[in-house]
Design a protein around this nucleic acid. Structure first.
Lengths: 240, 240
DNA sequence: CTAATAGTGTCTATTAGACATTATTGT
DNA sequence: ACAATAATGTCTAATAGACACTATTAG
Protein backbone atom coordinates (compact mmCIF):
# COMPACT_ATOMS: atom_id res chain seq x y z
CA UNK A 1 0.00 0.00 0.00
CA UNK A 2 2.76 2.40 0.89
CA UNK A 3 4.33 1.57 -2.47
CA UNK A 4 1.36 2.82 -4.48
CA UNK A 5 0.97 6.44 -5.47
CA UNK A 6 -1.79 8.63 -4.14
CA UNK A 7 -3.43 8.53 -7.57
CA UNK A 8 -3.51 4.73 -7.56
CA UNK A 9 -4.89 4.75 -4.04
CA UNK A 10 -7.72 7.10 -4.95
CA UNK A 11 -8.58 5.11 -8.07
CA UNK A 12 -9.28 1.97 -6.07
CA UNK A 13 -10.94 3.82 -3.15
CA UNK A 14 -14.68 3.16 -2.81
CA UNK A 15 -16.52 5.06 -0.10
CA UNK A 16 -19.53 2.72 -0.42
CA UNK A 17 -17.53 -0.04 1.27
CA UNK A 18 -17.75 1.76 4.61
CA UNK A 19 -20.90 1.93 6.74
CA UNK A 20 -22.57 5.19 5.82
CA UNK A 21 -23.53 7.99 8.14
CA UNK A 22 -26.58 10.19 7.67
CA UNK A 23 -25.46 13.81 7.50
CA UNK A 24 -28.08 16.49 7.93
CA UNK A 25 -28.15 20.20 8.58
CA UNK A 26 -30.77 21.82 10.81
CA UNK A 27 -31.44 25.46 11.45
CA UNK A 28 -32.92 27.31 14.41
CA UNK A 29 -34.41 30.60 13.23
CA UNK A 30 -35.31 32.95 16.07
CA UNK A 31 -37.07 36.29 16.16
CA UNK A 32 -38.59 38.74 18.61
CA UNK A 33 -42.27 39.51 18.35
CA UNK A 34 -45.12 40.36 20.67
CA UNK A 35 -42.75 40.47 23.65
CA UNK A 36 -41.69 36.87 23.11
CA UNK A 37 -38.88 34.90 21.50
CA UNK A 38 -40.24 33.03 18.48
CA UNK A 39 -38.80 30.01 16.70
CA UNK A 40 -39.70 28.82 13.20
CA UNK A 41 -40.77 25.17 13.02
CA UNK A 42 -42.07 22.97 10.21
CA UNK A 43 -44.58 20.14 10.41
CA UNK A 44 -43.20 16.94 8.93
CA UNK A 45 -45.34 15.49 6.13
CA UNK A 46 -43.28 12.31 5.70
CA UNK A 47 -41.72 9.53 7.73
CA UNK A 48 -39.95 9.40 10.03
CA UNK A 49 -41.57 11.46 12.79
CA UNK A 50 -44.44 12.27 10.44
CA UNK A 51 -46.86 14.86 11.82
CA UNK A 52 -44.43 16.18 14.43
CA UNK A 53 -42.95 19.66 14.46
CA UNK A 54 -39.24 19.97 13.78
CA UNK A 55 -36.50 22.26 12.57
CA UNK A 56 -36.19 23.21 8.92
CA UNK A 57 -33.29 21.23 7.51
CA UNK A 58 -32.48 18.11 5.62
CA UNK A 59 -29.87 15.86 4.15
CA UNK A 60 -26.66 17.22 2.80
CA UNK A 61 -26.83 17.24 -0.99
CA UNK A 62 -23.36 16.21 -2.10
CA UNK A 63 -24.18 17.10 -5.70
CA UNK A 64 -25.38 20.67 -5.19
CA UNK A 65 -24.13 21.92 -1.85
CA UNK A 66 -20.68 23.49 -1.83
CA UNK A 67 -20.52 23.92 1.95
CA UNK A 68 -22.43 23.05 5.10
CA UNK A 69 -23.73 26.59 5.39
CA UNK A 70 -25.01 26.53 1.82
CA UNK A 71 -26.78 23.27 2.57
CA UNK A 72 -28.45 24.78 5.63
CA UNK A 73 -29.46 27.92 3.80
CA UNK A 74 -30.83 25.97 0.86
CA UNK A 75 -32.89 23.63 3.00
CA UNK A 76 -34.39 26.50 5.00
CA UNK A 77 -35.49 28.37 1.90
CA UNK A 78 -36.77 25.19 0.29
CA UNK A 79 -38.96 24.26 3.25
CA UNK A 80 -40.17 27.59 4.58
CA UNK A 81 -39.61 30.26 1.95
CA UNK A 82 -37.76 32.26 4.60
CA UNK A 83 -34.25 33.41 3.68
CA UNK A 84 -32.08 34.45 6.64
CA UNK A 85 -29.33 36.90 5.72
CA UNK A 86 -26.65 34.96 7.57
CA UNK A 87 -26.23 31.69 9.46
CA UNK A 88 -23.88 30.82 12.27
CA UNK A 89 -22.83 27.36 13.25
CA UNK A 90 -23.81 26.30 16.75
CA UNK A 91 -22.80 22.71 17.34
CA UNK A 92 -22.80 19.30 15.76
CA UNK A 93 -24.65 16.42 17.37
CA UNK A 94 -24.37 12.79 16.46
CA UNK A 95 -25.25 9.36 17.71
CA UNK A 96 -26.80 6.06 16.85
CA UNK A 97 -30.08 6.73 18.63
CA UNK A 98 -30.99 10.12 17.16
CA UNK A 99 -32.62 8.93 13.96
CA UNK A 100 -34.27 5.54 13.42
CA UNK A 101 -32.59 5.26 10.02
CA UNK A 102 -29.12 4.84 11.53
CA UNK A 103 -26.06 6.62 12.86
CA UNK A 104 -26.74 10.28 12.15
CA UNK A 105 -24.83 13.51 12.39
CA UNK A 106 -26.58 16.85 12.35
CA UNK A 107 -24.78 20.15 11.95
CA UNK A 108 -26.80 22.81 13.72
CA UNK A 109 -27.03 26.35 12.39
CA UNK A 110 -28.85 29.30 13.81
CA UNK A 111 -29.81 32.88 13.05
CA UNK A 112 -31.76 35.78 14.46
CA UNK A 113 -33.93 37.55 11.90
CA UNK A 114 -36.90 39.88 11.68
CA UNK A 115 -40.25 38.07 11.74
CA UNK A 116 -41.11 37.13 8.19
CA UNK A 117 -44.07 35.28 6.78
CA UNK A 118 -43.33 31.64 6.08
CA UNK A 119 -45.14 28.95 4.16
CA UNK A 120 -44.88 25.22 3.59
CA UNK A 121 -42.85 25.17 0.39
CA UNK A 122 -42.32 21.46 -0.28
CA UNK A 123 -44.36 18.31 -0.13
CA UNK A 124 -42.21 17.14 2.76
CA UNK A 125 -43.61 19.94 4.92
CA UNK A 126 -47.32 20.24 5.63
CA UNK A 127 -47.20 23.43 7.70
CA UNK A 128 -44.86 26.08 9.09
CA UNK A 129 -45.29 28.29 12.11
CA UNK A 130 -43.44 30.71 14.37
CA UNK A 131 -43.84 29.41 17.94
CA UNK A 132 -43.24 31.36 21.11
CA UNK A 133 -40.39 29.66 22.95
CA UNK A 134 -42.50 28.96 25.99
CA UNK A 135 -45.10 27.18 23.83
CA UNK A 136 -42.77 24.52 22.46
CA UNK A 137 -42.32 23.04 25.94
CA UNK A 138 -45.59 21.18 25.52
CA UNK A 139 -45.16 20.49 21.78
CA UNK A 140 -44.58 17.01 20.38
CA UNK A 141 -41.31 17.60 18.56
CA UNK A 142 -39.34 15.41 16.17
CA UNK A 143 -36.02 13.76 17.04
CA UNK A 144 -33.92 15.79 19.50
CA UNK A 145 -34.99 19.08 17.95
CA UNK A 146 -36.29 20.58 21.18
CA UNK A 147 -32.82 20.18 22.67
CA UNK A 148 -31.29 21.74 19.55
CA UNK A 149 -33.50 24.81 19.96
CA UNK A 150 -32.20 24.97 23.53
CA UNK A 151 -28.60 24.95 22.36
CA UNK A 152 -29.17 27.82 19.94
CA UNK A 153 -31.03 29.78 22.60
CA UNK A 154 -28.23 29.29 25.11
CA UNK A 155 -25.80 30.64 22.56
CA UNK A 156 -27.85 33.81 22.08
CA UNK A 157 -28.44 34.19 25.80
CA UNK A 158 -24.68 34.45 26.12
CA UNK A 159 -24.35 36.82 23.17
CA UNK A 160 -26.99 39.11 24.68
CA UNK A 161 -24.58 39.65 27.58
CA UNK A 162 -21.65 40.83 25.51
CA UNK A 163 -22.89 42.02 22.12
CA UNK A 164 -25.71 43.66 20.17
CA UNK A 165 -26.30 40.56 18.06
CA UNK A 166 -29.92 40.41 19.32
CA UNK A 167 -30.54 43.44 17.08
CA UNK A 168 -30.64 41.02 14.14
CA UNK A 169 -33.90 39.63 15.53
CA UNK A 170 -35.73 42.96 15.19
CA UNK A 171 -37.39 44.64 12.23
CA UNK A 172 -35.32 47.64 11.27
CA UNK A 173 -35.20 50.36 12.24
CA UNK A 174 -35.79 49.71 15.91
CA UNK A 175 -35.99 51.79 19.07
CA UNK A 176 -33.73 51.48 22.07
CA UNK A 177 -36.66 50.11 24.04
CA UNK A 178 -37.16 47.37 21.46
CA UNK A 179 -33.50 46.37 21.47
CA UNK A 180 -33.39 46.47 25.23
CA UNK A 181 -36.55 44.35 25.28
CA UNK A 182 -34.88 41.76 23.06
CA UNK A 183 -31.90 41.59 25.40
CA UNK A 184 -34.23 41.36 28.38
CA UNK A 185 -36.13 38.45 26.84
CA UNK A 186 -32.89 36.55 26.31
CA UNK A 187 -31.25 37.42 29.60
CA UNK A 188 -34.47 37.11 31.58
CA UNK A 189 -34.00 40.24 33.62
CA UNK A 190 -34.77 43.95 33.36
CA UNK A 191 -31.97 46.24 32.24
CA UNK A 192 -31.37 49.90 33.05
CA UNK A 193 -32.29 52.29 30.23
CA UNK A 194 -29.37 54.59 30.95
CA UNK A 195 -26.76 51.87 31.09
CA UNK A 196 -28.10 50.34 27.90
CA UNK A 197 -27.97 53.66 26.08
CA UNK A 198 -24.39 54.19 27.24
CA UNK A 199 -23.45 50.85 25.73
CA UNK A 200 -25.10 51.72 22.43
CA UNK A 201 -23.41 55.10 22.24
CA UNK A 202 -19.93 53.95 23.17
CA UNK A 203 -20.14 50.98 20.79
CA UNK A 204 -20.67 53.01 17.66
CA UNK A 205 -22.08 49.95 15.89
CA UNK A 206 -25.68 51.17 15.71
CA UNK A 207 -26.59 53.94 13.33
CA UNK A 208 -29.16 56.53 14.29
CA UNK A 209 -31.82 56.98 11.63
CA UNK A 210 -33.93 60.11 11.10
CA UNK A 211 -37.31 58.46 10.72
CA UNK A 212 -39.79 58.55 13.63
CA UNK A 213 -42.96 56.65 14.40
CA UNK A 214 -46.31 58.04 15.50
CA UNK A 215 -46.86 56.67 18.99
CA UNK A 216 -48.44 57.53 22.28
CA UNK A 217 -45.77 59.39 24.26
CA UNK A 218 -42.45 60.85 23.19
CA UNK A 219 -41.32 59.26 19.92
CA UNK A 220 -38.17 57.21 20.27
CA UNK A 221 -35.01 57.66 18.24
CA UNK A 222 -34.64 54.81 15.81
CA UNK A 223 -31.51 52.84 15.00
CA UNK A 224 -30.30 50.35 12.47
CA UNK A 225 -27.50 47.83 12.59
CA UNK A 226 -24.19 48.39 10.84
CA UNK A 227 -21.78 45.67 9.66
CA UNK A 228 -19.44 46.57 12.53
CA UNK A 229 -21.93 44.94 14.91
CA UNK A 230 -20.60 41.47 14.08
CA UNK A 231 -17.13 41.89 15.51
CA UNK A 232 -18.10 44.12 18.40
CA UNK A 233 -18.13 42.99 22.01
CA UNK A 234 -18.85 45.08 25.11
CA UNK A 235 -15.88 46.32 27.10
CA UNK A 236 -17.68 44.94 30.13
CA UNK A 237 -20.36 42.31 29.92
CA UNK A 238 -23.84 42.88 31.26
CA UNK A 239 -23.90 41.59 34.82
CA UNK A 240 -26.28 38.81 35.65
CA UNK B 1 -45.96 7.01 1.14
CA UNK B 2 -48.05 8.89 3.65
CA UNK B 3 -50.25 5.79 3.86
CA UNK B 4 -47.47 3.53 5.07
CA UNK B 5 -46.52 3.26 8.73
CA UNK B 6 -43.17 4.45 10.04
CA UNK B 7 -42.17 0.80 10.52
CA UNK B 8 -42.88 -0.02 6.88
CA UNK B 9 -40.97 3.06 5.81
CA UNK B 10 -37.92 2.11 7.83
CA UNK B 11 -38.00 -1.48 6.56
CA UNK B 12 -37.64 -0.36 2.95
CA UNK B 13 -35.19 2.46 3.72
CA UNK B 14 -31.67 1.90 2.44
CA UNK B 15 -29.07 4.50 3.31
CA UNK B 16 -26.69 3.09 0.66
CA UNK B 17 -28.90 4.51 -2.07
CA UNK B 18 -27.79 8.05 -1.23
CA UNK B 19 -24.38 9.47 -2.10
CA UNK B 20 -22.26 8.95 0.98
CA UNK B 21 -20.37 11.59 2.92
CA UNK B 22 -17.04 10.99 4.62
CA UNK B 23 -17.41 11.81 8.30
CA UNK B 24 -14.27 12.25 10.33
CA UNK B 25 -13.33 13.65 13.71
CA UNK B 26 -10.11 15.57 14.28
CA UNK B 27 -8.60 16.82 17.51
CA UNK B 28 -6.33 19.74 18.32
CA UNK B 29 -4.38 19.00 21.50
CA UNK B 30 -2.59 22.01 22.91
CA UNK B 31 -0.20 22.45 25.80
CA UNK B 32 2.18 25.00 27.29
CA UNK B 33 5.83 24.17 27.50
CA UNK B 34 9.13 25.99 27.27
CA UNK B 35 7.36 29.34 27.04
CA UNK B 36 5.49 28.29 23.90
CA UNK B 37 2.14 26.89 22.87
CA UNK B 38 2.57 23.35 21.61
CA UNK B 39 0.29 21.28 19.38
CA UNK B 40 0.37 17.51 18.96
CA UNK B 41 0.60 16.36 15.35
CA UNK B 42 0.94 12.95 13.70
CA UNK B 43 2.83 12.02 10.55
CA UNK B 44 0.58 10.22 8.09
CA UNK B 45 1.92 6.80 7.04
CA UNK B 46 -0.80 6.14 4.44
CA UNK B 47 -2.56 7.82 1.54
CA UNK B 48 -3.93 10.36 1.14
CA UNK B 49 -1.48 13.10 2.14
CA UNK B 50 1.08 10.42 3.03
CA UNK B 51 4.15 11.79 4.80
CA UNK B 52 2.53 15.06 5.80
CA UNK B 53 1.81 16.15 9.34
CA UNK B 54 -1.83 16.29 10.42
CA UNK B 55 -4.18 16.17 13.36
CA UNK B 56 -4.89 12.95 15.20
CA UNK B 57 -8.33 11.78 14.13
CA UNK B 58 -10.07 9.49 11.74
CA UNK B 59 -13.29 8.15 10.37
CA UNK B 60 -16.32 7.79 12.53
CA UNK B 61 -16.76 4.14 13.42
CA UNK B 62 -20.52 3.56 13.29
CA UNK B 63 -20.11 0.15 14.88
CA UNK B 64 -18.15 1.13 17.96
CA UNK B 65 -18.55 4.85 18.56
CA UNK B 66 -21.55 5.92 20.61
CA UNK B 67 -21.00 9.64 20.13
CA UNK B 68 -18.82 12.08 18.22
CA UNK B 69 -16.78 12.83 21.32
CA UNK B 70 -16.15 9.14 21.93
CA UNK B 71 -14.99 8.83 18.34
CA UNK B 72 -12.58 11.73 18.76
CA UNK B 73 -11.23 10.42 22.05
CA UNK B 74 -10.80 6.92 20.67
CA UNK B 75 -8.95 8.07 17.59
CA UNK B 76 -6.59 10.27 19.60
CA UNK B 77 -5.65 7.46 21.98
CA UNK B 78 -5.32 4.99 19.12
CA UNK B 79 -2.94 7.19 17.14
CA UNK B 80 -0.85 8.91 19.80
CA UNK B 81 -1.28 7.07 23.09
CA UNK B 82 -2.21 10.40 24.66
CA UNK B 83 -5.52 10.49 26.55
CA UNK B 84 -6.92 13.98 27.17
CA UNK B 85 -9.23 14.18 30.20
CA UNK B 86 -11.91 16.07 28.30
CA UNK B 87 -12.68 17.29 24.80
CA UNK B 88 -14.67 20.26 23.66
CA UNK B 89 -16.24 20.69 20.27
CA UNK B 90 -14.94 23.61 18.25
CA UNK B 91 -16.55 23.64 14.83
CA UNK B 92 -17.51 21.40 11.96
CA UNK B 93 -16.07 21.96 8.52
CA UNK B 94 -17.23 20.38 5.31
CA UNK B 95 -16.89 20.66 1.58
CA UNK B 96 -16.19 18.84 -1.59
CA UNK B 97 -12.60 20.01 -1.91
CA UNK B 98 -11.27 19.15 1.51
CA UNK B 99 -10.46 15.49 0.91
CA UNK B 100 -9.66 13.93 -2.47
CA UNK B 101 -11.88 10.95 -1.62
CA UNK B 102 -15.08 13.01 -1.85
CA UNK B 103 -17.44 15.30 0.04
CA UNK B 104 -16.13 15.25 3.58
CA UNK B 105 -17.29 16.55 6.92
CA UNK B 106 -14.93 16.87 9.84
CA UNK B 107 -16.05 17.53 13.39
CA UNK B 108 -13.26 19.36 15.17
CA UNK B 109 -12.53 18.80 18.85
CA UNK B 110 -9.93 20.41 21.02
CA UNK B 111 -8.39 20.22 24.47
CA UNK B 112 -5.70 21.79 26.58
CA UNK B 113 -3.65 19.28 28.56
CA UNK B 114 -0.34 18.95 30.36
CA UNK B 115 2.52 17.95 28.05
CA UNK B 116 2.60 14.20 27.89
CA UNK B 117 4.86 11.84 26.00
CA UNK B 118 3.26 10.54 22.80
CA UNK B 119 4.17 7.77 20.40
CA UNK B 120 3.04 6.50 17.02
CA UNK B 121 0.58 3.83 18.09
CA UNK B 122 -0.80 2.53 14.79
CA UNK B 123 0.55 1.59 11.41
CA UNK B 124 -1.32 4.56 9.94
CA UNK B 125 0.97 6.92 11.86
CA UNK B 126 4.72 6.91 11.38
CA UNK B 127 5.59 9.58 13.94
CA UNK B 128 4.11 11.95 16.50
CA UNK B 129 5.44 15.23 17.80
CA UNK B 130 4.52 18.27 19.87
CA UNK B 131 5.22 21.32 17.70
CA UNK B 132 5.56 24.90 18.88
CA UNK B 133 2.75 26.88 17.27
CA UNK B 134 5.13 29.21 15.49
CA UNK B 135 6.94 26.23 13.93
CA UNK B 136 3.92 24.84 12.08
CA UNK B 137 3.74 27.94 9.87
CA UNK B 138 6.42 26.49 7.68
CA UNK B 139 5.30 22.86 8.00
CA UNK B 140 3.79 20.91 5.11
CA UNK B 141 0.46 19.95 6.66
CA UNK B 142 -2.27 17.60 5.46
CA UNK B 143 -5.68 18.76 4.21
CA UNK B 144 -6.91 21.97 5.90
CA UNK B 145 -5.44 20.95 9.24
CA UNK B 146 -3.36 24.10 9.67
CA UNK B 147 -6.55 26.15 9.49
CA UNK B 148 -8.20 23.81 11.99
CA UNK B 149 -5.38 24.40 14.46
CA UNK B 150 -6.03 28.11 13.96
CA UNK B 151 -9.70 27.72 14.80
CA UNK B 152 -8.95 25.89 18.05
CA UNK B 153 -6.32 28.46 18.97
CA UNK B 154 -8.72 31.34 18.34
CA UNK B 155 -11.20 29.68 20.66
CA UNK B 156 -8.64 29.46 23.46
CA UNK B 157 -7.39 32.98 22.83
CA UNK B 158 -10.93 34.10 23.59
CA UNK B 159 -11.24 31.85 26.62
CA UNK B 160 -7.99 33.24 28.02
CA UNK B 161 -9.74 36.61 28.22
CA UNK B 162 -12.65 35.47 30.33
CA UNK B 163 -11.77 32.23 32.10
CA UNK B 164 -9.02 30.15 33.70
CA UNK B 165 -9.43 27.36 31.14
CA UNK B 166 -5.76 27.79 30.11
CA UNK B 167 -4.91 26.17 33.46
CA UNK B 168 -5.76 22.82 31.84
CA UNK B 169 -2.69 23.20 29.66
CA UNK B 170 -0.30 23.19 32.62
CA UNK B 171 1.18 20.38 34.68
CA UNK B 172 -0.39 20.53 38.12
CA UNK B 173 0.20 22.05 40.52
CA UNK B 174 1.23 25.31 38.90
CA UNK B 175 2.36 28.71 40.10
CA UNK B 176 0.61 31.97 39.40
CA UNK B 177 3.48 32.99 37.16
CA UNK B 178 2.99 29.85 35.09
CA UNK B 179 -0.73 30.37 34.71
CA UNK B 180 -0.22 34.02 33.90
CA UNK B 181 2.40 32.98 31.37
CA UNK B 182 -0.10 30.66 29.69
CA UNK B 183 -2.63 33.47 29.43
CA UNK B 184 0.05 35.79 28.12
CA UNK B 185 1.05 33.33 25.41
CA UNK B 186 -2.54 33.07 24.24
CA UNK B 187 -3.42 36.74 24.53
CA UNK B 188 -0.08 37.90 23.22
CA UNK B 189 0.46 40.61 25.78
CA UNK B 190 1.92 41.00 29.27
CA UNK B 191 -0.50 40.98 32.19
CA UNK B 192 -0.21 42.63 35.59
CA UNK B 193 0.70 40.23 38.41
CA UNK B 194 -1.50 42.00 40.93
CA UNK B 195 -4.56 42.09 38.70
CA UNK B 196 -4.11 38.46 37.81
CA UNK B 197 -3.86 37.44 41.46
CA UNK B 198 -7.01 39.37 42.26
CA UNK B 199 -8.85 37.45 39.58
CA UNK B 200 -7.61 34.13 40.94
CA UNK B 201 -8.59 35.00 44.50
CA UNK B 202 -12.04 36.36 43.72
CA UNK B 203 -12.82 33.42 41.43
CA UNK B 204 -12.40 30.73 44.04
CA UNK B 205 -11.94 28.13 41.32
CA UNK B 206 -8.25 27.48 41.95
CA UNK B 207 -7.20 25.60 45.04
CA UNK B 208 -4.03 26.53 46.88
CA UNK B 209 -1.82 23.55 47.53
CA UNK B 210 0.77 23.28 50.33
CA UNK B 211 3.61 21.86 48.30
CA UNK B 212 6.49 24.15 47.29
CA UNK B 213 9.30 23.84 44.78
CA UNK B 214 12.99 24.47 45.32
CA UNK B 215 13.82 27.41 43.10
CA UNK B 216 16.07 30.42 42.90
CA UNK B 217 14.17 33.27 44.60
CA UNK B 218 11.08 33.25 46.76
CA UNK B 219 9.13 30.03 46.19
CA UNK B 220 5.73 30.57 44.63
CA UNK B 221 2.45 29.38 46.06
CA UNK B 222 1.14 26.52 43.99
CA UNK B 223 -2.41 25.95 42.80
CA UNK B 224 -4.47 23.24 41.21
CA UNK B 225 -7.68 23.41 39.22
CA UNK B 226 -11.05 22.54 40.73
CA UNK B 227 -14.11 21.32 38.79
CA UNK B 228 -15.71 24.74 39.33
CA UNK B 229 -13.27 26.16 36.80
CA UNK B 230 -15.39 24.90 33.89
CA UNK B 231 -18.43 27.07 34.51
CA UNK B 232 -16.56 30.12 35.79
CA UNK B 233 -16.17 33.32 33.82
CA UNK B 234 -14.56 36.57 34.94
CA UNK B 235 -16.86 39.34 36.11
CA UNK B 236 -14.92 41.57 33.76
CA UNK B 237 -12.88 40.28 30.87
CA UNK B 238 -9.20 40.97 30.52
CA UNK B 239 -8.84 44.09 28.40
CA UNK B 240 -6.97 43.83 25.15
C1' DC C 1 -54.07 69.05 31.26
C1' DT C 2 -52.78 64.21 31.71
C1' DA C 3 -50.93 59.91 30.69
C1' DA C 4 -47.45 57.69 28.48
C1' DT C 5 -43.15 57.01 26.89
C1' DA C 6 -38.20 58.58 25.93
C1' DG C 7 -34.17 60.52 27.36
C1' DT C 8 -30.76 62.80 30.91
C1' DG C 9 -28.12 64.20 35.34
C1' DT C 10 -25.70 62.64 38.84
C1' DC C 11 -24.21 59.93 42.84
C1' DT C 12 -21.91 55.75 44.57
C1' DA C 13 -19.49 51.56 44.72
C1' DT C 14 -16.55 48.63 42.39
C1' DT C 15 -12.45 47.41 40.32
C1' DA C 16 -8.86 47.07 36.63
C1' DG C 17 -4.52 48.85 35.71
C1' DA C 18 -0.22 50.79 37.09
C1' DC C 19 3.74 50.72 39.73
C1' DA C 20 6.32 51.14 43.88
C1' DT C 21 7.39 48.49 47.95
C1' DT C 22 8.13 44.60 50.78
C1' DA C 23 8.97 39.51 51.51
C1' DT C 24 11.40 35.20 50.99
C1' DT C 25 14.35 32.14 49.12
C1' DG C 26 19.23 30.05 47.15
C1' DT C 27 24.00 31.02 46.33
C1' DA D 1 25.18 40.43 51.12
C1' DC D 2 23.03 39.95 46.76
C1' DA D 3 20.36 38.46 43.03
C1' DA D 4 16.16 36.61 41.84
C1' DT D 5 11.61 35.85 42.18
C1' DA D 6 6.95 36.31 44.57
C1' DA D 7 3.59 38.84 46.88
C1' DT D 8 1.39 43.17 48.57
C1' DG D 9 -0.01 48.31 49.31
C1' DT D 10 -2.10 51.88 47.35
C1' DC D 11 -3.44 55.49 44.06
C1' DT D 12 -6.27 56.71 40.04
C1' DA D 13 -9.40 56.55 36.33
C1' DA D 14 -13.21 54.43 34.35
C1' DT D 15 -17.79 52.97 34.48
C1' DA D 16 -21.92 50.07 35.64
C1' DG D 17 -25.89 50.39 38.30
C1' DA D 18 -29.41 52.95 40.51
C1' DC D 19 -32.84 56.24 40.46
C1' DA D 20 -34.70 60.73 40.32
C1' DC D 21 -35.67 64.16 37.09
C1' DT D 22 -36.80 66.41 32.63
C1' DA D 23 -38.58 66.30 27.70
C1' DT D 24 -41.87 65.39 24.14
C1' DT D 25 -45.62 63.51 22.18
C1' DA D 26 -51.09 62.05 21.56
C1' DG D 27 -55.59 62.52 23.06
Amino acid sequence: MSQTTEQDYLKQYDSKQFPSVLVTVDTVLLSFDDNAIKVLLVKRANHPEMGKWGLPGGFLNTEGDTSLEVAASRSVVAKTGVAPSYLEQVETVGGVGRDPRGWSVSVLFSALMPMQHSEANTESVSDTQWFAIQDIESLDMAFDHRALVGKALDRYRQKALYSFVPAYGLTQPFSLAELRGAHELLIGKELQRKTFLRRVESSGVLEEVLEVRKVRGKPAKLYRTTPAIDGYTFERNIEC
